[in-house]
Amino acid sequence: MKKYIILVCLISIFSCKKVGKKNGKLKVVTTTTMITDLVKNIGGDKIDVQGLMGAGVDPHLYKASEGDVGKLFNADVIVYNGLHLEGKLEDVFEKMRQQNKKTIAASDALDPAILIGSEYFASNYDPHIWFDITNWELITQYITDKFCELDAENSETYKTNGADYLKTLASLKLAITEQVNSLPVARRILVTAHDAFNYFGNEFQFNVVGLQGLSTATEAGVKDVQRLASFIEEKNVKAIFIESSVPKRTVEALQEAVRAKGKEVVIGGTLYSDALGSAGTAEATYVGMYKHNVKIIVSSLK
């Protein structure tokens, strides 16, 4: 409660400051690494981007620091995922909206009819929307249009960059589809630390099973581990996967539970789920992350 009061006070202070384009550039603050990468692709050299979350950071559990509040309220626009992915930032976002701060939720680009339902989130939808490439294309166009409205002076640049990135995403979808099609549907069972990959599963016919459910805020219990170990034994699953933003101990416990049943299941590798890879690596981009994940999944399950 004390921290919340401090944040509210800081919000009130920062909201009184006048913000404007710095050196002719739109000042943008983003939340997740996926959103940061997308915004950079659209904005190019016409924007100044600050991402709150880095590689390996779990957005489900992320809490705003005092420094974050300063960044948010000195921005011209804030871009975030939405659907309560950044659950612990919701109070801050609501306060910003009350102060007429411009915010863009990527999820607003999507018709609720195409979202996956979830009882684990206040939005009632699974927020891991970036794992459907078609969703990401719609979100790219939506954010491009919003930037053009906010900064008409540089709209042609945003339109060109957005169109170029849409071509990149179309090429990615073709490459991923070809790679996934090399894996028989019967082997497309994806067992991970938490249910971040349901949109991916829907798009490419994977049966996705997460040990912790949709949110990492929930803890996997002994019954969850035993239930999933029985599933792996029954389906003869060859590999399970850890995630870069989730502690690996629960997946290792699952592996031991399978072994106790007289079966072996390997840990196929590390997937990027709620965050991209470290700066300077191919996995630090959405496209690189997606290619890495699919390569690991397909090669391990074959």
Rank of each mutant, 00 (worst) to 15 (best):
L10E: 11
V180K: 05
S273E: 09
Y272D: 09
K21T: 12
T140L: 02
A175Y: 00
Y62D: 12
L183T: 12
P184L: 02
V19E: 10
V185W: 00
L174V: 13
S182C: 08
P112L: 02
T30W: 00
Y290F: 14
F14A: 12
A284F: 03
R188K: 03
G67I: 01
D151Q: 04
Y62L: 08
T157G: 00
L166W: 03
F147L: 12
V77L: 10
E252A: 12
F204H: 07
K3Y: 15
T103D: 06
N207W: 00
A186W: 03
E86S: 10
Q98Y: 11
V29N: 10
A75C: 12
S15V: 09
E256L: 07
L138M: 13
L72T: 11
K3Q: 14
T140H: 01
I5A: 14
S12Y: 00
L174A: 12
V237W: 01
A55R: 05
S244R: 04
Q205V: 02
M34L: 05
T270A: 07
I5P: 09
T160F: 05
L166H: 03
V209P: 02
S215K: 01
Y120I: 13
V208K: 00
I189G: 05
V251K: 01
L115R: 07
G288R: 05
K25N: 12
T285K: 03
S123Q: 07
N23M: 05
Q205A: 12
D164S: 12
T140P: 06
L172Y: 05
Q179K: 15
S230K: 11
E153Y: 04
W130Y: 06
G67Y: 01
Y80P: 11
L26D: 10
I129E: 08
K238E: 15
A282V: 07
S278I: 08
L254K: 01
T192A: 04
N23L: 06
I114G: 05
K27D: 15
L301D: 11
V237F: 01
V69A: 06
G277I: 01
V266T: 15
Q212G: 11
R188N: 07
V185P: 07
